[in-house]
């Protein structure tokens, strides 16, 4: 008889097992992300390029009442987070299209663990991209006023946004029939910060956009980041931002669980 006595970490189906699966998936997805050099470089360079374009090409023509680079950094951070998180959809769609998901399922790995792995990788990618954007921003004159508490709070808001958007992207990845379709979602998310206060004041937009720009989830996230980093009062924006993130996360976790079961029925 083969050695079925090999020590096992935990009983099947137990929460400890689900946690192990999620951690193993997180390590896997992070490793795959790090080795997908083209996509990684794009996600690091694109936000920096956009920031440079805004600051040096458009910055002279836009008056926001603050130094433009300082005004724009929170928006670039959010744009960067969105772009990085949306790549989760491509990773999930790729796994679903290949035999690897059968392999995982036959080992009793659930959809939640697989999604959690992709979301963790997304968080790691975003931490790197955010670091790069901040470094370049500081080099070109971004002067935040935040103290340690402000930085910590800003990091928290950004993390909540990344988490919510990554899990939403995971659900989109389950919905998409191919990786190409999933990558379309990246563009949608990339454009979401434009009709908001990310790059210009909402007041300068046409009236019909105010309703959307003022109330879409990206706006309170940017407003709270800006307030926290510049040491200004953030008011209700912080709670609005967190509420949006919590809502999106809850819906996405539930939806992805359901979609995974349906895809693998």
């Amino acid at each position: 008889m083969p050695d079925l006595t090999a020590p096992r970490a935990a009983a099947p189906g137990s929460p400890a097992r689900v946690l192990t699966h999620s951690l193993v998936m997180a390590a896997r997805c992070t490793r795959l992300s790090a080795r997908n050099t083209d996509a990684l470089l794009t996600s690091l360079i694109l936000p920096v390029m956009l920031m440079l374009v805004f600051v040096y090409f458009f910055g002279g023509a836009i008056d926001t009442g603050t130094r433009y680079v300082t005004y724009i950094v929170p928006g670039v951070l959010v744009l960067c987070a969105g772009y990085g998180a949306a790549a989760t959809a491509v990773g999930v769609a790729g796994d679903m299209a290949e035999g690897v998901v059968d392999c995982f399922r036959s080992l009793d790995v659930g959809g939640t663990s697989l999604m959690a792995g992709h979301v963790a990788a997304s968080a790691a990618r975003n931490a790197a991209a955010t670091g790069v954007v901040l470094a370049v921003a500081l080099a070109i004159g971004f002067r935040p006023e935040a103290g340690p508490a402000g930085w910590a709070a800003a990091a928290g808001v950004l993390a909540a946004y990344v988490l919510a958007l990554s899990w939403l992207s995971a659900a989109v990845g389950l919905l998409a029939k191919s990786t190409e379709a999933a990558s379309g979602f990246t563009f949608l998310v990339l454009f979401l910060p434009y009709p908001s206060s990310a790059f210009v004041l909402v007041d300068t937009m046409p009236g019909w956009l105010h309703g959307f720009a003022g109330n879409q989830p990206v706006t309170p996230v940017i407003e709270s980041l800006r307030g926290l980093l510049l040491g200004q009062p953030v008011g209700g924006a912080l709670w609005q931002a967190l509420a949006w993130c919590a809502g999106i996360l809850t819906v996405s976790v539930a939806a992805s669980g359901m979609l995974f079961r349906r895809r693998t029925a």
């Binding site: 090999a6 970490a9 997908n36 290949e98 035999g99 690897v100 790995v109």
Partner: peptide
């Protein structure tokens, strides 16, 4: 059809499967 991760080494793939199976 081949199911393992092309971007992981053979050893990484096998260790991952072992961990998922429940080995320490």
């Amino acid at each position: 059809y081949a199911a393992l991760d092309e971007q992981q080494t053979g050893e990484e793939n096998l260790r991952m499967m072992g961990r998922l199976y429940g080995l320490t």
